[in-house]
C-alpha cells in the first residue's frame, strides 16, 4: 500500500512540474573522473527520476587523459541525448569559463552546480528545489556548517582549518551565508550568468566570490544542510598553497567588495 502511495505522490509532483515548466540543468565540470562520472550520473538520474523534475546533465570535460569523455559518450547512449549533453573542451581552462561554456547550451531556467567526484550527493537535489520554491530564492547554497550538514573523512586538522577559515571569513565579510567555499548550489540561470561575468578568482575563492557578489547585488540566498563525503576515489588536497591562495582571495574580497 505504501508503495502505491509513493507512486501516486511522485506522479502528482511530476505532473505539477510539467505544468509549471521549470527545468534544471546540472553542470558537471570534469577532469579525470572516469570512475566517478557514471556513478554521479546514475545517482542524478535516480533522484531526478524519483522526484519527477525535468532535468538535463551537461558534462563539461576538459580534455581528461583518462578517457572520461569515452565514458560520458557511453552514458549518453544509455540515458539519451536529451538527458546527457556533452560539451567538452580541449584543455583545462578553469571553473568560471566551464560554467559559461556549459550555460551556453543549457536549456533549463535553473542551473545546478556540483562536484562530479561524489562528495556532493544528488539526494539533496529535491531539498534544494523545495527550498528555492519556498522563498523564490535567486540562489540556494548547500551548507556543511548548519543543521544536519557535516563532513566525512576529515581529520581534526582539516576540521580546524575549515572552521577557522570560515570564522575569519564570517568576521571580515559578513556574507549572510554559512558555507562560502562549498560548491553545491542551485542558481536561477540569469543570476548565474550575471555572477559568473563578474567573478575573477580561481579555485576555492571562486565559490566564495560568487556568494559574496550575490549578496552585494542584493540577490536572495537560501541554504540547505548537506553532508560532504570527501573523495571516494582519487585524492583530496589541502596543502600550504591552497591556504595561501585562500587568504589572498579573502583579503582581495575584503578590500574590493
Amino acid at each position: 500500500l505504501q508503495e502505491i502511495h509513493v507512486a501516486m505522490a511522485s506522479r502528482k509532483t511530476s505532473h505539477q512540474n510539467r505544468v509549471n515548466g521549470d527545468k534544471y540543468s546540472v553542470l558537471l565540470p570534469t577532469y579525470n573522473e572516469r570512475e566517478n562520472l557514471p556513478l554521479i550520473v546514475w545517482l542524478l538520474v535516480k533522484y531526478f527520476g524519483e522526484s519527477g523534475f525535468n532535468y538535463e546533465i551537461i558534462v563539461i570535460d576538459d580534455g581528461s587523459p583518462d578517457g572520461t569523455l569515452d565514458v560520458a559518450e557511453q552514458l549518453q547512449k544509455i540515458y539519451g541525448e536529451d538527458k546527457i549533453l556533452l560539451r567538452p573542451r580541449a584543455k583545462k581552462l578553469g571553473l568560471g569559463t566551464a560554467y559559461i561554456h556549459g550555460m551556453k547550451h543549457a536549456t533549463g531556467n535553473f542551473i545546478f552546480i556540483m562536484d562530479a567526484d561524489l562528495s556532493h550527493h544528488p539526494k539533496f537535489i529535491p531539498e534544494f528545489i523545495e527550498k528555492q520554491k519556498e522563498g523564490d530564492y535567486d540562489l540556494v547554497s548547500g551548507t556543511r556548517y548548519q543543521g544536519n550538514g557535516g563532513v566525512y573523512g576529515w581529520d581534526l586538522r582539516r576540521k580546524l582549518i575549515s572552521r577557522g577559515a570560515n570564522f575569519l571569513t564570517q568576521v571580515l565579510l559578513r556574507p549572510g551565508a554559512s558555507d562560502l567555499t562549498g560548491s553545491f548550489r542551485l542558481y536561477k540561470k540569469k543570476v548565474l550568468e550575471s555572477l559568473v561575468e563578474q567573478c575573477v578568482s580561481k579555485g576555492y575563492v571562486f565559490q566564495m566570490e560568487m556568494i559574496v557578489r550575490a549578496r552585494q547585488l542584493n540577490y536572495t540566498v537560501g541554504e540547505v544542510p548537506i553532508s560532504f563525503v570527501d573523495r571516494v576515489y582519487g585524492e583530496s588536497k589541502l596543502g600550504g598553497n591552497e591556504i595561501v591562495s585562500f587568504v589572498k582571495g579573502l583579503l582581495t574580497l575584503f578590500a574590493t567588495t
Binding site: 556548517y145 570564522f167 563525503v229
Partner: peptide, 23 residues
C-alpha cells in the same frame, strides 16, 4: 564548532552501498 562538526558516517555508508548498486 570543531568539536560539534558532524561526522556523516551514515552518509558515507549509504554512498558505498549505492555505488555497488550503481555499478
Amino acid at each position: 564548532r570543531v568539536a560539534t562538526f558532524n561526522d556523516c558516517d551514515e552518509a558515507a555508508k549509504e554512498l558505498q552501498e549505492q555505488i555497488k548498486e550503481a555499478k
